[in-house]
């Protein structure tokens, strides 16, 4: 059950030029959080809360890692240790974490919720993380510490392989029989991952992103188009959907 809570910030860190990490004293929200779920975070002076996925949770603490995208996240990035934030969570349906061999595919800040999945997955975990360049790469060390293997790609080749995640993804799928793929990142990346997963007949789950209002399923503001033509609520039916059901057409 989601709850509303005013949380004290225990740690605040700038990871990359536009990427920040906050550790919150989140009590029971932390204890019940599941990988892929998110928080609705109140940003002072903004009318709507901002949905931010949970990067890690445990022992009453939640870590969120986010990128400055607009005013709301800009305000949040200015928060310091000892400040408080009002959050609602944990929200949404997250990633399935069972399975013998799991492949995580993350793009940019989308790596954040996959880290929580990596920590909680019961089987062997491999990850492929794509970034624009080495100076926008986040969570690289912690991924290395929890995953059996991690491949990096960057658009400029400054870290790992040059290009997008597609290349290493195909190679991994040719080498290893994965139980499932879990992906989070920009929509074009998710579309590509879904397509490749279908080619290799590996069940794939994608975490979708959309502008939200309520975050709890009441307002129908965050619509994700499904292949049957219906719209599902990203906040409540998702944010994680089976990739085979999502319509990635514009």
């Amino acid at each position: 059950m989601p709850i509303q809570k005013t949380c004290t910030i225990l740690r605040s860190e700038r990871l990359i030029p536009y990427g920040y990490s906050l550790v919150l004293d989140a009590g029971e929200i932390a204890d019940t959080a599941h990988p892929g779920q998110f928080l609705q975070v109140q940003c002072d002076g903004q009318f709507l809360r901002r949905p931010i996925s949970i990067c890690d949770a445990g022992a009453g603490r939640i870590r969120i890692v986010f990128e400055i995208k607009g005013k709301g996240t800009q305000i949040l990035a200015k928060k310091r240790v000892g400040d408080s934030v009002d959050v609602i969570g944990p929200l949404g349906h997250g990633f399935p974490i069972h399975g013998e061999t799991v492949l995580l595919v993350g793009g940019g800040i989308g790596a954040a919720p996959l880290f929580f999945a990596a920590r909680r997955c019961l089987g062997t975990v491999h990850a492929i993380l794509g970034f624009r360049s080495a100076n926008t790469a986040v969570l690289t060390e912690v991924f290395r510490s929890v995953c059996r293997q991690v491949d990096f790609t960057t658009e400029d080749g400054s870290l790992g392989e040059s290009g997008f995640v597609d290349g290493p993804l195909r190679r991994r799928l040719e080498e290893t029989k994965y139980t499932r793929i879990l992906a989070c990142g920009p929509q074009p990346m998710l579309r590509a991952v879904a397509k490749i997963a279908a080619e290799f007949n590996v069940p794939c789950f994608v975490s979708m992103e959309e502008r939200m209002a309520c975050g709890v399923g009441a307002c129908l503001g965050c619509a994700c188009k499904m292949k049957d033509g219906s719209y599902q609520r990203v906040c409540h039916d998702g944010p994680v959907f089976s990739a085979s059901e999502v319509s990635f057409d514009d």
Binding site: F47, A213, G221, S230, Y231
Partner: peptide
Amino acid sequence: RAGNPPPRIAETPGGMLNAVGLQ
């Protein structure tokens, strides 16, 4: 009714816009 395609929500000063489309 299926409603409108996203984005359906926008933040505004002191409020918000919605175009859910009677889903």
